[in-house]
Design a protein around this nucleic acid. Structure first.
Length: 463
RNA sequence: GGCGACGUGGCCGAGUGGCUAGGCAGCGGCCUGCAAAGCCGUCCACACCAGUUCGAUUCUGGUCGUCGCCUCCA
């Protein structure tokens, strides 16, 4: 099966043709670390990590690179507001970003470069741009000459003559020119040496430099939020292609925005839910399920109702896995029954859906088909344990791609007190004292355990 | 104002020129002491107006509306 992805530059879905057969390099723009990230910021991370999991499962060798921008105007501002050194603030927020995203349980990108570690590459690239006539130094600053890059605007669909840029700053030669290097300004407590004096890189150059450094001059896939398309990715493209004369990214991958209360979730609007808070409240699985429910390019509604839906669909998956585990035992996967056949078909459909522009909703639908078939088989009577084990294995395997394998985890058993109550309830039921039995069920509920009377006896599950 | 995306059933959310998306919720049934879980059946669609077509939710044009970008932004 061929991997197909939507390329923002070509504005269509196309077959992915890797630079090296069997291998894919993926660069995703990470955060500027000036404060805690919100749930929306997590979307590109989740898309990249889950896409990589799918690709690895289907035989690709994948290298994910995602940067931390730890030099930026906002970092100076935030540090000043707190009265601490900007370097200290960036380090603290970098660590916090790594902690927060790690809690999603999707692992880490293979490489996570920081701007502060990439100054030599950045400076070399700026020198190259100046040498090639694509950029010019001006009194400690360096600017990229946009007029020098004919296809500027092609990625974002902006036309240079239609753009209404801010008024020209004194050192720029043209309004659209953007900074590659900025001279240190008063109040900025950190600066780096360069051929143009003390200063720091502009916003866009670091991604070009770090992407090339980690993945080469041409990269397979470059991703990020769609709000980065302009100017960030447009500028990255201009810089990179000016210096190499080759396409920078073979596929530009952009995820849609998270909507919160009808608007894009963003720090500037203030309608944010911090990722750490959301993880505390909802847990990683609910958030990951929510992300998977919508196609990565679509806007995604983040609301109590959508979280509730995500939680409940996880419950359904968890319940099916639990039922299957009771029957499956430790049977070796040598199954060939009808359920195993369905499982195989669903696995194929799951992979095909993700290969087709990473259609997680369709992939999820395939899994629910297997859930329904599995439940029906379990309802129908004694099921072949090997078949059930096979179906369960496929479910777990597929869910793992989405970071949801934890739904198969067996919870810690109930405490002795709860077990005792359950036994008491069984005695009451045997005596047909249903009032007593129901009262005990309420007590168990209060302890956090739900009773289910199954065909082969009662079972306690975490509420 | 410019560029782009999109408008699907009670809600969320896929998809397709004629053939079941899926989840949640509702209704009926089975199972159950009851409940939960599950299964079966079922109601509720493709913003509006034209056009193309044997046939459009699916293509074309227009209208209205929503969202994103054009400034920091995942």
């Amino acid at each position: 099966m061929t991997l197909r992805l939507y390329d923002s530059l070509r504005r269509s879905v196309h077959d992915v043709e890797p630079l090296v057969p069997g291998r894919l390099g993926l660069y995703v723009c990470g955060p500027t670390v000036y404060g805690p990230i919100h749930v929306g910021n997590a979307r590109p991370f989740v898309v990249a990590q889950t896409l990589a999991r799918h690709l690895r499962r289907t035989g690709w060798e994948v290298r994910v690179v995602s940067n931390l921008t730890d030099i930026n105007d906002k970092i100076y501002a935030a540090a000043q507001a707190e009265g601490i050194a900007s370097v200290a603030l960036a380090e603290r927020e970098s660590a916090r970003y790594l902690d927060d995203t790690s809690r999603l349980g999707l692992g880490r990108p293979d490489v996570e470069p920081k701007v502060t570690d990439a100054l030599p590459e950045i400076i070399a690239m700026i020198e190259g741009l100046i040498a090639g006539g694509h950029a010019y130094a001006a009194d400690g600053d360096v600017y990229f000459r946009v007029a020098d890059f004919p296809s500027y605007g092609a990625l974002s669909g902006q036309r240079i003559d239609e753009m209404q840029p801010e008024e020209i700053t004194s050192k720029k030669q043209a309004p659209l020119d953007f900074a590659l290097w900025k001279a240190q300004k008063p109040g900025e407590d950190a600066a780096w040496e360069s051929p143009w004096g003390l200063g720091r890189p502009g916003w866009h150059i670091e991604c070009s430099a770090m992407a090339m450094s980690a993945l080469g001059e041409e990269i397979d896939i470059h991703g990020g939020g769609i709000d980065l398309k302009f100017p960030h990715h447009e500028n990255e493209r201009a810089q990179s292609e000016s210096i190499t004369g080759r396409p920078f990214a073979r596929t530009w991958l952009h995820n849609g925005m998270l909507r919160f209360g009808g608007d894009k979730m963003s720090k500037s609007l203030g309608n944010v839910d911090r990722l750490a808070d959301a993880l505390d409240r909802e847990g990683a699985e609910t958030l990951l399920s929510l992300f998977a429910r919508a196609h990565y390019r679509s806007p995604l509604d983040y609301s109590p109702a959508s979280l509730e839906d995500a939680r409940k669909s996880n419950d359904r998956l968890r319940e099916a896995l639990r039922r299957a585990a009771r029957v499956a035992g430790t049977t070796a996967p040598a199954a060939a029954g009808p359920l195993a056949a369905t499982a195989a078909a669903v696995d194929a459909r799951f992979r095909a859906a993700l290969d087709d522009d990473f259609a997680t909703p369709e992939a999820l639908a395939a899994l629910f088909e297997l859930v329904r078939t599995l439940n029906a088989a379990l309802d129908a009577g004694p099921a072949d344990p090997a078949d059930v084990a096979q179906a369960r294995a496929v479910l777990v395997d597929c869910l793992d791609v989405l970071g949801l394998a934890g739904l198969a985890a067996t919870a810690d058993g109930p405490p002795a007190a709860a077990v005792a109550l359950l036994q008491e309830r069984e005695a009451a039921r045997a005596a047909r004292d249903f009032a007593r039995a129901d009262a005990i069920r309420d007590e168990l509920q209060a302890l956090g355990w739900v009773v289910q009377d199954l065909a082969d006896g009662p079972e306690l599950q975490p509420a």
